[in-house]
Amino acid sequence: METQQTSKHSDAAKQPDPMLVRPLQIHRIIKELGDTFSLILQPQDDDADFPFQPGQFNMLYVYGVGEVPISISGDPARRETLVHTTREVGTVTRAMRKLKVGDSLGVRGPYGKGWPVDKAENQDIVLLTGGIGLAPLRPMIHYLLTRREKYGRIVLLYGARTPEDILYRKDLEKWRSRFDLEMHLTVDHATGAWRGNVGVVTSLVSRSPFDPQNCIAMVCGPEIMMRFAVMELQKRGVADDRIYISMERNMKCGIGLCGHCQLGPTFVCKDGPVYCYVDIKDIFTKREM
């Protein structure tokens, strides 16, 4: 029996094959930390427009090596380039680090659900992040600062392993000098000249100035750090439907067809990576879910 094409589906039928990658040229490479780097991509032709929602990701393909999901970490207002920050943790990201300016990277995306930009309007914003978790939140910070008047207080709480592991130092310095964004940095361990906070990022929650009844918290970091973060936010009186977290799972297709990224009844690639905590609270702490 032949498949019936309804009008809704025939639109989708005309869509370009979502499995195909688009080659984009590496325009610039920024060495961020020892094993962390940013790639700034531009197309070879003039057709440069990459709209995305803060929190979304792209599938990045290294020629002949493989493909991995990487969050978009640039300014969403600058649609002519794509910025990705990643750590060298596996075969593909290792190969990615060896690429040079002028080389090409295959791109598919943007995919997934991003941060709740609309729901956050008129609310205090708590950005709670650790390690490279700052990368998926950076577009959100840019987004908020571009529309600063639409939001209440903005509090950025960022934790790194050591002072040497602090990502996007230049951005952080710029943001720290603003009067309309309150920033607290902390490191898990420090030696030498560090005179700032020492301790886990979650302990910053209790002493940060925001209204727990009228805030949206956006949390991004290692899963275990996010579990502690949620508990701290709850302790502070933030309701579950005001907490958003960004999840990570194995992804092969990025579009809900390969099955790998399932988290309970959800697909991280299309129902996430950003979830409202209230929607996954029953599965968030389940082992080996």
Binding site: G34, G130, G131, R161, V200, S203, I224
Partner: peptide
């Protein structure tokens, strides 16, 4: 209790080692 909990999280070293690579 808060310090103990924070210490446990600290000991988990959740961000992984990136400095020495």
């Amino acid at each position: 209790a808060e310090l103990l909990e924070a210490t446990r999280l600290q000991l988990l070293d959740v961000y992984g080692n990136s400095t020495n690579k």
